[in-house]
Design a protein around this nucleic acid. Structure first.
Lengths: 159, 159
DNA sequence: TTAAATTATTTCAAACATAAAATATCTAAG
DNA sequence: CTTAGATATTTTATGTTTGAAATAATTTAA
């Protein structure tokens, strides 16, 4: 027994299994993400980041601040600026200045953006269902509950 | 009961739970990935993609082909080219032409690259352990087994 | 009130990433 | 042997992403 081991909690001594779990988690999400990216591109000619932004905005009909989008999507502020710029150019999203705070701009989907997203969302939902078909509804619920801890651990923090 | 539902297997009818699972999976891996990215940057001044490449090469002392790296990391060929270019410039990686096939180049870590990686890997392992500390060793093993299906579903396919 | 600190967003440079096209090499059919 | 097709990699154009710095507006405190 090494000097390291005696200092460790037996439950946390063997860190190999957690590293393996992390690698599996990462590979699973990359595989699914890659497949969804590919299907969104070939079917709707849309990139995954753009779809993600539209999905976030669709859930909030009153719009979101740039900083809320950044936090929700877990990407940097500058990234959101560029994405919204391009989506605005394409008429899918608009910035409005209805606040008393002139630093902020409320971003929301245009009517074209909503229609566009609804069509894509139906396919997206079906694809996710297909790609996760290894899991029954019950298993999905259990697993989702297991993973709940993470989002909440960091969510709310700026990055 | 709608016309849709009668056509579906009862086990797969309710797709909401799978979509929720996907979103949780994605948020969990993004949160962990973001935290690791930040720590690698501030502690070792290295980017996550560079760490990932070095980790892949460390496992293969005899080196890997560009296409193997691309497949293993699930990123495009062009992306690997750029990463290896930059790592080569910094003396952490080298291309060798020891094959009878002049199209291919075998990439491997330099001695400096191996030393550099070993130092980072120790911290990385500890960080993963910390970030996944919600899971006991047993839970990690069970969960990793559950996620095993995915990687193998797509792995081996070119992207 | 005014200056300092804070907050929200954008800009910038560099790196990362994709997909398609180009290049170079190898393999195999004839 | 020649060449058509396949394979491995790089190049190119475009888009995504980060982190730091700059800008602009608001809030706080002296």
């Amino acid at each position: 027994m090494t000097s390291q081991e005696v200092l460790m909690d037996p439950e946390t001594t063997d860190d190999k299994s957690r590293v393996r779990l992390w690698l599996r988690l990462l590979r699973a999400s990359r595989a699914i993400e890659g497949e969804l990216r590919e299907r969104l591109r070939t079917t709707f000619n849309v990139t995954l980041p753009r779809f993600d932004v539209m999905a976030a905005l669709y859930r909030e009909p009153d719009g979101m601040l740039m900083s809320q989008l950044s936090k929700y999507l877990m990407v940097s502020n500058g990234n959101v600026t560029g994405l919204i710029d391009r989506l605005t150019t394409d008429g899918l999203v608009q910035r409005t200045l209805r606040d008393g705070d002139r630093r902020t701009s409320v971003v929301l989907l245009t009517e074209a953006g909503r229609e566009n997203f609804e069509i894509m969302a139906a396919s997206h939902r079906a694809w996710v269902n297909e790609l996760l078909s290894h899991f029954t509804t019950k298993e999905s619920e259990v697993l989702a509950e297991t993973l709940k801890v993470f989002a909440s651990d960091w969510e709310g923090e700026a990055r």
